[in-house]
Design a protein around this nucleic acid. Structure first.
Length: 556
DNA sequence: TTTTTTCAAGTCAAAAT
DNA sequence: CATTTTGACTTGAAAAA
């Protein structure tokens, strides 16, 4: 009982934070922090962009799949780095950036100015979640999750879901969520009664599967089988999930009763049932969002499908032993169709393979040595780099929603994992190398974009940057956008609205202006201008001017 | 300002029911 | 035997020094 009560009690202890205002300004004690943050907070909750981009990448939206252009052998070989070797570089004709070599160190890249480095560190600092925000969000989300589990357990009308259990996943639980703890992902694990027959769908290079039981069963799963009595229907599972969650929510009471959860409309290509937390009175702003994804667990006696056996290239990074322990774990299937219309019958009921739990473990135990991040002397900056990359990707998507529609956070995650496996040594990632490491990571993503080659980390035959899902046009756009970000000192990493407390100019950042990349130049100022110190300076100047004007007025 | 200490939360598995 | 409870361990942020 020590587990549940303290949470509640602690909430009442900090009365201000819980009841009325979910987060932000009020209890922020550090003024500088409040200045820096207030603007970003509400804006980022925008459901339309933020959610889809972020979470979507993870389980939901990204569809790397059947790239037509690359042959499998090549992809497999190239895992992790962009082989150009011979002819196979399709993307941009003029590519000044040399192909990334596996182990180049910071100084081989363009040098990073003092200012930029400082700026990167500041931004990394600013991406952290605040505990007061977490406390509020976590109480609500955990209560929701636990109640949903109880509901499913007692739901007699759908026995198959009674044995479901939750596996927390996604960026919050990977400890790489940025800005706000406002998005949570959970997989609802569903047991398979027998071994599964996993049939790769042609043309998708091992990402999408038809999943069938290997023999007939009397388990409760049988209400979700197709007519053949073996094939498991993805659409039946997801719609039933959706129905159950709706039913649960219709009776569920949010503790505190200032908010309510609503079940979002079902999106045709999404494996998730998405819940949004809204204010009871004005139900406009989405305060939290939770994705629940049913996930079919492959029995542990069965290995991964063939395409994933070539799987994560972590031998140099984590060692063979760790690799074995990873690949011996189970994998999951989430009910997700491949993108596009006019799908075959099998594709309509298809599942996508998911390694969310292993991604989580990789990001958590990310060190070359066991001792990485164990004490202050062995700290590394890997996660910080990843957070910065996420931030940049979100920024890019916000600015170019149409052009970069295909881009999602999973591309960032994949590039990050490849980068970790290539730059394996802990000594390359010490905290003071953060700016250089981040530029490396950015360069890697740029390289992937240039070569049009970003193999799925676990299914290397599947290229996440291949044309059907990632149009060539978008790829070129992305390449140029990244290049420009780098050249201009990462303007998009600047805080969304630098000067809201003063209500001075420049909301320039928040309005999406889908101008071609080149035209972006004049809109954005170099980062130094907005940096905190300079900001203070600016403030002083403004104050001085105001005083002067007052004096003049008075004299007149 | 930077470093150390404390605290909330997540995970895992042993112990208890 | 299965489910729930408990405690040890880890991480990251906030408070204190």
């Amino acid at each position: 009982m020590n587990r549940t009560t303290p949470q509640r009690r602690s909430s009442s202890r900090r009365q201000t934070s819980v009841p009325s205002t979910p987060s932000r300004e009020p209890q922020t004690t550090a003024p500088s922090r409040a200045l820096a943050r207030t603007p970003s907070t509400p804006v980022d909750l925008q459901p339309s962009l933020g959610r889809e981009a972020e979470e979507g990448g993870y389980l939901d939206r990204e569809d790397g799949d059947g790239g037509s252009t690359i042959e499998d052998s090549q992809t497999g070989a190239s895992l992790g780095q962009q082989t150009d070797g011979n002819s196979s570089t399709p993307a941009t004709p003029n590519s000044p950036l040399p192909r990334q070599r596996p182990h180049l160190t910071g100084d081989e890249l363009a040098p990073i100015s003092q200012e930029l480095a400082r700026w990167i560190r500041l931004r990394a600092q600013d991406l952290k979640l605040r505990q007061s925000d977490r406390q509020w969000a976590v109480d609500l989300v955990n209560h929701l999750r636990d109640s949903l589990l109880v509901f499913l357990k007692n739901s007699d009308e759908q026995p198959y879901f009674q044995s479901a259990s939750v596996l927390n996943s996604g960026s919050y639980y990977e400890m790489v969520k940025i800005h706000n703890p406002n998005e949570f992902d959970m997989m609802l694990k569903l047991q398979s009664p027998s071994r599964l027959k996993m049939t790769e769908l042609d043309q998708y290079h091992g990402l999408f599967y038809e999943v069938a039981l290997s023999r007939r069963t009397r388990s409760h799963i049988r209400s979700f089988l197709l007519e053949d009595g073996l094939t498991i229907s993805a659409s039946k599972i997801i719609s039933e999930m959706h129905r159950l969650v709706r039913k649960f929510i219709s009776t569920y009471k949010v503790p505190g009763s200032s908010w309510r959860w609503v079940v979002n409309r079902k999106r045709p290509n999404s494996p998730a049932v998405t819940l949004s937390l809204l204010e009871v009175d004005d139900g406009k702003e989405e305060l939290l969002s939770v994705d629940v994804v049913p996930a079919l667990e492959v029995p542990s006696s069965q290995g991964w499908p063939l395409a994933a056996r070539a799987g994560p290239d972590v031998n140099n990074w984590l060692g063979k032993k760790t690799r074995r322990s990873l690949t011996h774990q189970t994998c999951f299937f989430v009910p997700k169709k491949p993108p596009g219309r006019n799908l075959s019958e099998a594709a309509k009921e298809s599942w996508r393979i998911s390694f969310s739990h292993i991604e989580k473990e990789l990001i958590r135990t990310h060190g070359n040595k066991r001792t990485c991040c164990e004490s202050s002397t062995t700290k590394c900056c890997r996660k910080q780099c990843f957070k910065l990359l996420k931030c940049l990707i979100e920024g890019l998507k916000k600015r170019y929603p149409q052009e970069l529609d295909a881009l999602c956070s999973y591309h960032g995650k994949t590039a990050f994992l490849h980068n970790l496996s290539i730059r394996a040594q802990d000594s390359l990632w010490t905290p003071h190398q953060l700016p250089a490491c981040f530029m490396h990571l950015l360069g890697a993503l740029e390289g992937h974009a240039k070569s049009g080659l970003l193999p799925h980390f676990f299914v290397p035959t599947s290229n996440l940057f291949a044309p059907p899902t990632f149009p060539r046009k978008a790829l070129v756009f992305l390449t140029e956008a990244l290049e420009e970000q780098r050249r201009q000192g990462l303007p998009l990493l600047m805080p969304p609205a630098p000067a809201p407390p003063l209500a001075v100019h420049s909301p320039s950042n928040s309005q999406p202006q889908p101008s071609p990349v080149v035209q972006q130049t004049p809109v954005i100022q170099p980062p130094q201008v907005i940096e905190t110190k300079s900001f203070v300076k600016m403030f002083k100047i403004v104050a001085l001017v105001v005083v002067l004007v007052c004096v003049v007025c008075y004299l007149l």
